[in-house]
């Protein structure tokens, strides 16, 4: 397992697309903060930390996870891995763990970037109220949900182009269609409550408006990402266990 971890870790860090996507994401954040500064609407550094993952970060995740997860199947190198006696489950979970580790590390870097840049632009640090801590913790949890969704989709499809497309627009499309169906059927059910992008936005907004999160918000922030991880990562694992290469 140690060898496989080292192999995957090395491969991911040597993946140029990771740095390109990451750099583009940071550039978007930089431009957003710069324009806020120019308009004189620069929030505190802690406040900007809370919004760091809400502008471009999830797109970065959707692309880099698809590129990483589909790399071995698209280049057929997965054959070399299985042929060396590494079980499908082990390969799957190591890929999951490595990409999750990088995802969390990049989230922390985004936060740090926004915090430092705000300070450099002359913004205040801000006071660390409960809502900020809750927002950061819940956002990280939601990002784990996002990672599970993107990783699961990529491993299910095993096709690079399709995975990137679905990761970028698939969730929104599915929820728009579901909303339409529910509205046509006149059922009283707020499907958007379960939408990850909506959840992330709600967490960011709550952190900016309330001193403390409501318990229902915390519960929603904890449970929904778990549902995504279990559903998509589980489905990807089940399919990959039996898939011929």
């Amino acid at each position: 397992m140690g060898n496989l971890l080292r192999f995957e870790w090395r491969k991911l860090w040597q993946q140029k697309s990771l740095y390109i996507c990451f750099g583009i994401g940071l550039a978007i954040n930089f431009l957003a903060l710069l324009s806020a500064k120019n308009f004189g609407a620069l929030d505190s550094a802690l406040g900007n930390m809370c919004v760091a993952l809400n502008s471009g970060y999830t797109s970065f995740l959707g692309i880099y996870i698809a590129l990483y997860a589909c790399q071995d199947s698209s280049q057929q190198t997965i054959k070399n891995i299985y042929a060396r006696g590494y079980s499908r489950s082990l390969v799957y979970w190591v890929k999951y763990a490595v990409s999750l580790g990088v995802t969390l590390a990049t989230a922390l870097l985004y936060w740090g970037f926004n915090f430092l840049l705000t300070c450099c632009f002359g913004g205040e640090v801000g006071s660390f109220i409960t809502a900020v801590g809750q927002a950061l913790a819940l956002q990280l949890w939601v990002i784990i949900g996002y990672h599970g969704l993107f990783f699961g989709v990529a491993m299910l499809l095993n096709k690079l182009g399709g995975s990137i497309a679905i990761n970028l627009i698939g969730v929104d499309c599915v929820f728009v269609v579901l909303s339409l169906i529910i509205s046509l059927l006149k059922i009283d059910f707020n499907v958007m409550y379960y939408n990850l992008p909506n959840l992330l936005t709600d967490i960011v907004e709550a952190s900016l408006m309330m001193p403390e999160f409501t318990s229902s918000m915390v519960l929603r922030g904890i449970i929904i990402p778990v549902l995504y991880v279990v559903t998509f990562v589980g489905a990807g694992w089940l399919v990959n266990r039996r898939r011929d290469v």
Binding site: Q14, K16, Q75, T77, K79, N80, A83, R84, G85
Partner: peptide, 22 residues
Amino acid sequence: QLNLGRAKIGALIEAPAFYQNC
């Protein structure tokens, strides 16, 4: 215990598989 055995095997199946940009 097939995976233990496979660790002692080197293989080339169908088209050779490697990282194209390396």
